[in-house]
Amino acid sequence: MKLMTWQEIPIGGLILEAGNAKKFLTGDWRSQRPILDEEKCINCLTCFMVCPDGSIVLKDGKMSGFNYDYCKGCGICAYECPVKCITMKPEEDFR
């Protein structure tokens, strides 16, 4: 990101664009990647409630996967899943 001059930024440290942290991808922190087994998933959405990073993707209110742009790979979703339909796999496997 190009750094702006003092004339270009709002005064007082104000940030005008809500939620622009979405432009900062935290997915590259990840060393383990969650993988969903859709067959097993019962859509209890526990993963959605406990994800610290809002990285559970819902489609029509149903669990449909992960947003790897932000998922830091903590593994809480896999650990808390009551039917164990999420497994954590080493990130190297996907490179």
Binding site: K22, F24, T26, T46, F48, V50, P52, D53, G54, N67
Partner: peptide, 26 residues
């Protein structure tokens, strides 16, 4: 209840830099 919760607006967006597995963001 969880469906209602899932529909509620997300007030803390992704892209924050709390540690992986942080309890505060949950």
């Amino acid at each position: 209840k969880i469906d209602i919760m899932a529909e509620m607006p997300e007030r803390l967006s992704s892209g924050h830099r709390l540690c992986a597995g942080c309890g505060a963001s949950i």
